[in-house]
Structures are given as C-alpha cells and as structure tokens.
Amino acid sequence: MTATPVFPPLFAGRDAHGAYPFALACTEAARGCDAGLVVYDLAPDRLRAALVLAPEVALREAAAMLPLCGVGFQNALGALAPPEVAVHLGWAGELYVNGGHCGRLTLGAATRDPAALPDWLVVGLTLDLWPADDETGLTPELTALYAEGCADVDAMTLLEAWVRHTLVEINAWEEDGPARLHRDWLGLAQGLEKEIEIAGQRGIFTGVDEHFGLLLKTGDKTALIPLTDLLEETP
C-alpha cells in the first residue's frame, strides 16, 4: 500500500496525482471545501503542495500567511536537514537553500480587495528536490534540496513537518499578534538592505511595513509594494 502523509487534526490531505496542487486547492476552496485541506503532489524530483485557509481578518492582514508559511517551511526543514544547511526567504515567496533559489510559495484568495474578508485563502509550495539539469554550474543561482546536503530528507516527511510547523506559527500569530512573525521573518529575509528588483522597480530592500508590504528605497524616495500585489490569478 502506498504511504500517505499524516497531518494534524482538522487537516485533510488530497493527492493531486500529478495535477498542480495550487490550482486544484483554489478550485476546491471556491467550491466551499473545509479549511485545512492540503493538496499535494510528490514526484521524484519535486514537492508541490497547497494549503487552504479560512481567514477571519481582511486580506491585507491575511496575506501574512505567505511569509508565515515561509517561516513554517524554514522551521520544518531546519528540524530535518543537517545543521549547516541555511534557509532564507524572499519577499515574493522565493525559497533559498544555501543561497540558491530552490522553490517558492504562492498566494491566492477569493478576493483581490485588501479591505475585504476573503472567503478563502490558499498558499502553495513548490520545492525542487533534484536539479533540472546535471550541468548545475551553468545556473549557479539555482539549486535543489538534494544537491545541498539534504538527500536524507524524505519529501513526505518534509510536507508533514511543513504543515505542523505552519500550524504552530498560525496559532502564535492569532494569539500574540504579528510581532513574532515580523522578527522571525526578517531574520530569514533574503536581500535585506541590498539592491533588488521587484515588479520592474529597483531599489534597496529596507524592510517591510506592518502588513509585510515591501519598502523599496530609490534615492531619497521609498516605495511601498503591498503584499497583496503578489496574489496569483486563480481558476
């Protein structure tokens, strides 16, 4: 019998069988599925998953689930990988392992209005396990989990750990507010205080506002890019 992942109570797994979990989770959420659905696709070279949530706050606040799921991922991999493996998080959902781009998180919601209470919200995870090309020296900025000393990290175990650690972060965020999440995420932020390019704008990434909007300084001006600008088109 094929093993299936085990999730905390109130979470239910669904195998996407090769379909894109993020799109499938958004479709199921729009149909009214329960929060806590975890759609996943475990392939030999890639882990993909998506988590359905039911926010109780406006979208501009609920969008914090994107960086929160990133912190959950770092905690999950940190518990399973060798101690020398470093995980960092890009503002737009990028996942970096030992400095190389290894995957990303995506965000979808029932509405694009930052002031509205979304009926549902989905965070997707894509993680490369093996490099797409054996000639990894041609793309040094890209990597894969098993190329970074993590060959013993089982993908299903990592998926289970991601959901568990994300649940811990959600509970802390609901009980204590966003201060802890801001502190933990900024400690993992890739490119902080460096020049980056986001949405065609280039400047110094100086930090985030209270809703995790990106603060991008160009000359003597600072632009704010809301986290809700990262919302993906949903089915």
Results as ranks from 00 to 15, higher is better:
Leu159His: 05
Thr166Gln: 07
Thr136Gly: 10
Thr111Trp: 07
Gly108Asn: 13
Thr139Pro: 03
His182Tyr: 05
Gly103Tyr: 02
Leu188Ile: 05
Thr166Met: 15
Asp119Leu: 14
Gly137Met: 02
Thr136Leu: 04
Leu186Asp: 10
Asp133Cys: 05
Ala179Thr: 15
Asp113Tyr: 12
Thr111Lys: 07
Trp130Asn: 01
Asp134His: 08
Asp152Ala: 14
Glu141Val: 09
Ala115Trp: 01
Arg180Ser: 13
His165Leu: 04
Ala110Asp: 08
Val163Ser: 12
Gly99Thr: 04
Ile170Asn: 09
Val97Trp: 00
Tyr146Arg: 05
Asp128Ala: 05
Ala109Asp: 15
Trp130Asp: 06
Arg164Val: 08
Val97Ile: 14
Leu142Lys: 12
His101Ser: 15
Trp162Lys: 09
Leu159Lys: 14
Leu107Lys: 09
Cys150Glu: 00
Ile170Ser: 04
Asp152Lys: 06
Gly99Trp: 11
Pro131Trp: 03
Gly99Ile: 04
Ala151Met: 01
Leu138Ser: 01
Thr106Tyr: 05
Leu159Ala: 07
Glu175Ser: 08
Ala151Val: 00
Arg112Pro: 13
Glu175Met: 03
Asn98Asp: 07
Ala109Gly: 15
Gly99His: 11
Asp176Lys: 11
Leu107Cys: 10
Thr126Cys: 12
Arg104Phe: 05
Ala161Arg: 05
Thr139Cys: 11
Leu127Asn: 03
Arg104Gln: 11
Arg180Ile: 02
Asp133Ala: 12
Pro178Lys: 00
Pro118Cys: 04
His182Thr: 11
Gly137Thr: 06
Pro114Phe: 14
Asn171Arg: 06
Gly177Glu: 12
Thr143Tyr: 09
Pro118Arg: 04
Leu125Pro: 11
His182Asp: 09
Leu145Phe: 00
Gly137Ala: 14
Ala172His: 03
Asn171Ile: 02
Trp185Ala: 08
Asp154Tyr: 07
Gly137Tyr: 02
Thr143Gly: 08
Thr111Leu: 08
Ala151Glu: 01
Ala132Gly: 10
Glu174Ala: 08
Val153Met: 00
Ala155Met: 04
Asp184Glu: 11
Glu175Lys: 05
His182Gly: 04
Leu145Cys: 00
Tyr96Gln: 04
Arg104Lys: 14
Leu125Phe: 07
Ala109His: 09
Gly108Ser: 09
Ile170Arg: 12
Glu174Lys: 14
Ala161Ser: 14
Leu159Gln: 09
Asp154Ile: 06
